[in-house]
């Protein structure tokens, strides 16, 4: 095995032994998503979405809307914390790997690979739990937007881990997805387009896609997914830069 493969496979083992992460993966989807469906009153609510390029309001069942919002919150929250833990734990010790001969790109590839694997699992579990109660109109578009928002939050977790300590980082990564996805982008709370500054948050573009492809029969937000992917790439470049500075041999 080469260095990247070795660091990746050992990194996966290390994360599998992170019982906090495993517990979050088991407890959060059920408590957030399943309970959201169970306790939400089944009434029709006006929902803001995109139809033929126009922002319109459609009537949808409140549990469905709640489910569409709680699923990415769950996934973003766990992925964000995973990214945070990954960076906090690896930040200092990965520098020793560089002294041992690892190239920065090998360490980065391994760490990002671990985060990608965790994000895939988190997204899979979150969507799987959601599917018990709710089937989106366009499942694969929905899953694509879920992956984008989860990876974006995972990377943001890594960035936060580079500048804040564990406790401060945890608070931030607990609050950020709640505010972003659960408040600023929630189509139940914001009946018109969100303010310009709310659109700067990572949830804006992916949630548009999820509301559209989860709750309406036509896909009108393909371009939003492209913007969401662009946002993800921007965060990825920033994170790689920060990680590179931390792990390269001087």
């Amino acid at each position: 095995m080469n260095r990247t493969t070795t660091a990746f496979s050992i990194g996966i083992k290390e994360q599998a032994r992170n019982y906090v992460l495993v517990a979050l993966l088991v407890v959060l989807p059920v408590s957030f998503i399943t309970l959201a469906f169970a306790v939400t009153q089944d009434v029709e609510m006006p929902v803001r979405t995109l139809v033929d390029g126009e922002t319109v309001t459609v009537m949808r069942g409140m549990p469905e809307v709640h489910g569409v919002i709680m699923t990415p919150i769950t996934s973003a929250l766990i992925a964000g914390l995973a990214g945070l833990f990954l960076m906090r734990e690896a930040k200092d010790t990965d520098g020793r790997l560089a002294v041992a001969g690892y190239r920065a790109r090998q360490v980065i590839a391994a760490r990002f690979g671990v985060l990608a694997a965790i994000t895939l699992i988190v997204t899979g579990v979150s969507v799987g739990v959601m599917l018990i109660d709710f089937q989106p109109e366009h499942l694969w578009w929905f899953v694509a937007a879920m992956l984008v928002i989860s990876v974006t939050y995972g990377l943001i977790g890594m960035l936060v881990g580079a500048v804040l300590d564990r406790l401060a980082g945890m608070w931030l990564m607990l609050i950020l997805p709640m505010l972003d996805i659960g408040l600023f982008q929630d189509p139940l709370f914001i009946q018109s387009e969100p303010d310009w500054w709310m659109k700067l948050f990572p949830g804006y573009w992916p949630v548009r896609v999820m509301v559209d492809t989860g709750l309406t029969t036509d896909v009108d937000t393909a371009l939003s997914l492209v913007w969401a992917t662009g946002y993800l790439l921007l965060v990825a470049v920033l994170t790689i830069g920060v990680y590179y500075r931390a792990t390269r041999a001087k």
């Binding site: 080469n2 260095r3 660091a7 050992i10 083992k13 290390e14 010790t93 790997l97 041992a100 001969g101």
Partner: peptide, 21 residues
């Protein structure tokens, strides 16, 4: 000690050994 807490001693040798080539 700059080591990864959740790795075993054997895994730690394997990880750094790979770095040393």
């Amino acid at each position: 000690p700059l080591l990864y807490d959740r790795l075993t001693v054997g895994e730690t040798f394997r990880l750094f050994g790979a770095g040393y080539g």
